[in-house]
Structure formats: structure tokens, C-alpha cells
Design a binder for these strands. Structure first.
Lengths: 193, 193
DNA sequence: ACTGATATTAGTACCAAGTGCTAATAACAA
DNA sequence: TTGTTATTAGCACTTGGTACTAATATCAGT
């Protein structure tokens, strides 16, 4: 018998590469105790591209849909999904430092910061600024809560260079914050380089 | 004279690569009408890594995307004058860390945070929460600006336990931010301990 | 115009991480 | 034993480079 069956090895191979696209054939050969050639045959059969192509894929995927207006570390909360000029989703874990000592309720500006960051990030432009916003804090949020904020671009006026974004934040499915943000942008439609 | 000066070419080279890290030396050589070797010397001098390293950087950056959510400074502005349930004044000095790297304009949530903090502070109650707010960012604020924010309590409804506060922020006398905040409070008039 | 410094180009050997191909074994099953 | 599938080996070739040497251009100052 083989160390493992071919099938089993290929299953694990797919997983391993999916898990870490940066692994070379040589590393895989060592890991599965087979020759490099075997790994290559496996990749052929499974139609898995070579290392460089895999890396390029990862890079270009994020490059196409990169957050243009905001370097990633300037975002409050973690963006977990984004489709520029359409919608975006972020997660923000409320910790002790975000709440009032007195009553344990999150300070409004942290929720606003998350929403505002996301509104800026969703705009497919280098310069995006909040011009106006109308917000409501629906329910108090506490330390330990995981706030999921969704931004939906609902309108765009080319003349005034404004884009309207609707923000909704929830904790365990319950709405805690809603807001409508008017964003200013520099570039018009199709003007993106 | 050269096609362009070396300096100029290198400036453009940096830009081009920053703009599109997927470009090869050969493409760059064609673009700038110089030899591949010149491009390589330029990259050496500018310490720009080779294509594969650049791609790997882009890929790994997004791959180990552990975004740090920056907590906002606890003290948002310094309160310099306060008359509970009437008016309050605070100062906030905008520093480099409060602005977008990209364009030097202060992130909206810092201005909101200052206003929100002041709105909470002006309410003479142990529990004051922002329920709703309607805000406008009138003019961009930059690093070095000193933002003076004034809160004025303009209305109070005992039944709904709401207090309306008007906020105005100025830099050198010019209005940069205005907002109307609806604050929730637990205690009614005269109920304060 | 001559010299020296700087800039550019050319060419070679080498590397990583492959592809594509052929051929030799090995393992197993009927 | 034969046929099939699986595995390994080896070689030539590819991209997009590095590292290095050497030749040539270009320009600036005297």
C-alpha cells in the first residue's frame, strides 16, 4: 500500500494549499513524503496553479478591490467584506476601554467611528469625506458585544459629487445603530484611473 | 541632456511601481525608453524590491490581515468651561494621528467624538446617552488646527427624558462642524441627588 | 579640447520555482 | 505473468530576476 492513497494525499494537498497558498512544491513533497514530481502531477490533476500564480491571484484579488480611500489600519473595526461603491461589512469588538465607566455603555463616538470609517472605505475614491450624517443610537452597546456594521451605497449624485451611504450596526442580530451618511468624493463615475 | 533627468525618471518609477506593483522591469524599460539594466540600477538605488517580492508583499499583507482597531484617545478635547444643563466649551488640538495619511484632513469621527463627549458632559445626569444626532462637516480640518467646540442646551422634554443640544465647532472663528444631538437622561429636573 | 565623474548599456553566470516531456521503476490487481 | 496505475528521475527550457564586470556615453569644469 501507499503511504496514503493517492486520493487522500490529493485531498490533503488541496487543503494545505488552500490554507497556505505560499507553500512550494518542494515543501509539499517533504510534507507528504513523496517526490516533487508527484506533487506536480497532483497539481496537474487537481488543476492547481504553481506557487507564483497562486500568489499573484491572492495579490491581484485584493488589489482590484482594495480600499483606496483608507489605508487598512485607519479603519475602526475590521473590514470583513467589501465591494467598492456598493456595500461593505465590518466587525468591531467592544472592549472595556470603549465604554463609560459609570454605566458600562459604549460611548457613541466609537460606534460612529466604526460606521464613519466604513462609509469612507466603501467609497471607491482616493478622497472621500463625510459631509453630513443623520444617526440614531437605537440600543445601548456594552463591553463584550461584537458590533457588525453594514454599509450600503444607496445613491449617487454626479453633479454634487455626493454619495449616500446607509449604515446599520447590529449586535446578535439586533439593530443598535442606524445612520445615513452623505459622502463627498473627488472623482466621478468612470473617472477612476 | 538625457531623455529626462535620472532623478525625474526615478521619481516616476517609484510612482509607477507604487501604482501598479505588478509591472516587470522590461515593461518599465520600454515605458521609460531605457535599458532593463538602468531600471534595475534605479530599483537598487531606490531600494525597490523585485516584482515577485512586491507581489508577495501585497499578497501577504492581505493574507495575514490582522487589522488593529485603533482605540480613540480617551480624552477627546479638554473641557475649559461648563455650566451644567446649559452650555459647555472644549478645545481639541488636531494632531498628525487624527488625520488621513492620504490627504491630511481630520477624520470625521474625531470631530464627532469631541462634540459627542461635550454633549454628554453638559447633561447634568449620571446617565446621559446620545440617542440621535444630525451633523454636518462644514469645512475640512487639518493637523495643527485648534478646534473649539461649543455645546448649547436648547430644549428639554421631561416626558421622553430627552434633551436637545446644539453643537458648533470652529477653527479660527470659522465654523467647521455643526450638529444637533438628542440626549437621553435618566433623571428629571430636580431629581438630581 | 581634455579629464574625471556620473550615467547608461551590454553581457555573462547564476538562481528559484517552476513547465513539458520522456523514460524508467514500483506497486498492485486479475 | 501481464496490464494498469502510480511514482520517481532526468533533462531542456522559461521568467524575472541577482550579482558582477566591462565597455561606452554624456556632461561639467577647467
Amino acid at each position: 500500500m501507499l503511504r496514503r492513497t493517492k486520493k487522500e494525499r490529493q485531498r490533503l494537498l488541496s487543503e494545505t494549499i488552500a490554507d497556505n497558498p505560499f507553500v512550494t512544491d518542494e515543501q509539499l513533497a517533504t510534507q507528504f513524503q513523496v517526490s516533487v514530481q508527484t506533487i506536480r502531477l497532483d497539481r496537474m490533476e487537481l488543476a492547481i496553479p504553481e506557487l507564483r500564480e497562486r500568489i499573484k491571484d491572492v495579490a491581484s484579488k485584493t488589489y482590484e478591490n482594495e480600499v483606496k480611500s483608507l489605508p487598512i489600519d485607519e479603519v475602526i473595526g475590521e473590514i470583513i467584506d467589501i465591494e467598492l461603491d456598493n456595500r461593505a461589512l465590518s466587525i468591531f469588538d467592544v472592549k472595556e476601554e470603549h465604554v463609560f465607566q459609570r454605566n458600562g455603555i459604549a460611548r457613541g463616538h466609537h460606534l460612529f467611528a466604526q460606521a464613519n470609517s466604513l462609509a469612507v472605505a466603501v467609497i471607491d475614491d482616493e478622497l472621500a469625506l463625510t459631509v453630513h450624517s443623520n444617526i440614531t443610537f437605537v440600543k445601548p452597546v456594552r463591553a463584550g458585544d461584537r458590533v457588525i456594521t453594514k454599509a450600503i451605497v444607496i445613491g449617487r449624485d454626479e453633479k454634487s459629487q455626493r454619495t449616500k451611504v446607509e449604515l446599520t450596526s447590529t449586535v446578535n442580530g439586533e439593530t443598535v445603530f442606524v445612520g445615513e451618511f452623505d459622502m463627498y468624493r473627488t472623482k466621478g463615475k468612470g473617472e477612476q484611473q
